[in-house]
Design a protein around this nucleic acid. Structure first.
Lengths: 213, 213
DNA sequence: GCCTTTTCTATCCATGCGGATAGTAATTGA
DNA sequence: TCAATTACTATCCGCATGGATAGAAAAGGC
């Protein structure tokens, strides 16, 4: 039945709330992948018990999907570039921040769990596919909006095609995530991000560009 | 002892040779990831037996590494862009081909197994890390060489910095692989590759550029 | 202060995993 | 043709996995 709303008793409280469980799971899934993260490890990293994982989430995969949903909600609300306000410079900074040193140890936004879903599963599970599609579509929409607006405001070179540029940025972002997973410890990710930054800044109209690369 | 060279008998022949085993393994690892590919599935897809996997390769991970080595050898020799001869147009075509429709069903070069190594493992295994480093370094070298040569030949805009551009291309390539894994069935990968193509062609000197974007 | 509800702990289970082993079938040099 | 060598088949093993279950423990309603 409807367990919320007319519950007679509130009963025992969970040790770990959903959000912090998601935070722990995100980190583990990112490091180990879906298959590589065992339910026992999830217990340790999230604070959840395998019992709770089963009863309130419905098992490992359902929990992963729920984590992914929560993560995407949060990413869209707080970490995706804002289509209303972002300038090209903001977009360039946004790329720079993704690979920033402060963020490197604890990755918690910008699509890493979506990246994980892509690499951990083949496309046989529609539940997973839907989330991936949601991620890519939403991100593409943001990029297109920002670039289109920049174009109408004449701060971008007119040859730049918003849809094509958006796809370029998506490739760049996914590639950046891959690099961040490939080279965790050193300064490489930043230099790669700088390449992306340079690309975006190169789009600016010559007038607005003092000297980029 | 040295089993080749002075073997007394040649004994029973393997049903499956190394190369076709590698080909099958490549496909399976790409679809399922390292952890997601079981040794039983490897038997079916490669034609190897679990016995052979154990005795001549030394187990699943060793076999993966051997596959990765063979694959990287082949990729460097045949599929990486040639630093001696590639023009910018060749480079653009090279990107276009990666996501081409003919290639999509059977991915067999251009770094997908390296991508796999990145996403399937954390960086705790030096054996894996070495291969990833080899892949990234070799690829970066190719890109830098091609762009540098184009620059000396004045067919590229002088503002383009070879090292930075190479990193951009690596991000793009890795992102393209991610997209190919994310959206397997449709025309998306091509359109993403076209974005990369457009970028490379945009580097050409205005003189050499009839009309790209 | 009990009752109900929910989570906790602690097992237990069946399954699939990577790997090991023993006996059989090929293959070739001597 | 026999001995040596290697791969094959078939089975077995210990282990880790995701999941299930049965009390015990918390926590608020009445």
């Amino acid at each position: 039945m409807d367990r919320k709303g007319k519950g007679k008793s509130v009963a025992r409280k969970r040790k770990t709330d959903h959000d912090s469980a998601v935070a722990g799971a995100l980190d583990l899934f990112w490091r180990q992948g879906y298959q590589g993260a065992s339910t026992r490890e999830l217990e340790q990293e999230t604070g959840l018990t395998r019992f709770t994982l089963q009863t309130t989430y419905g098992g490992k995969e359902k929990f992963f999907l729920k984590t992914l949903d929560t993560y995407l909600d949060n990413a869209e609300a707080r970490h995706f570039p804002d289509p209303e306000t972002f300038s090209l410079d903001d977009l360039a900074d946004w790329f720079r921040e993704i690979a920033s040193a402060e963020r490197m140890p604890k990755i918690e936004d910008a699509g890493c769990l979506a990246f994980n879903a892509i690499s951990s599963f083949d496309r046989s599970d529609p539940e997973v596919n839907d989330r991936i599609e949601r991620y890519l579509t939403a991100l593409e929409g943001r990029f297109v909006a920002i670039i289109s607006r920049a174009k109408t405001e004449k701060v971008i070179q007119s040859e730049v095609e918003p849809e094509e540029a958006a796809r370029l940025l998506i490739c760049l972002l996914l590639g950046l995530h891959t690099i961040m997973k490939a080279r965790t410890t050193d300064q490489f990710p930043q230099s790669y991000a700088e390449a992306a930054v340079g690309l975006v800044e190169g789009w600016k109209t010559p007038l607005a560009t003092p000297e980029s690369w």
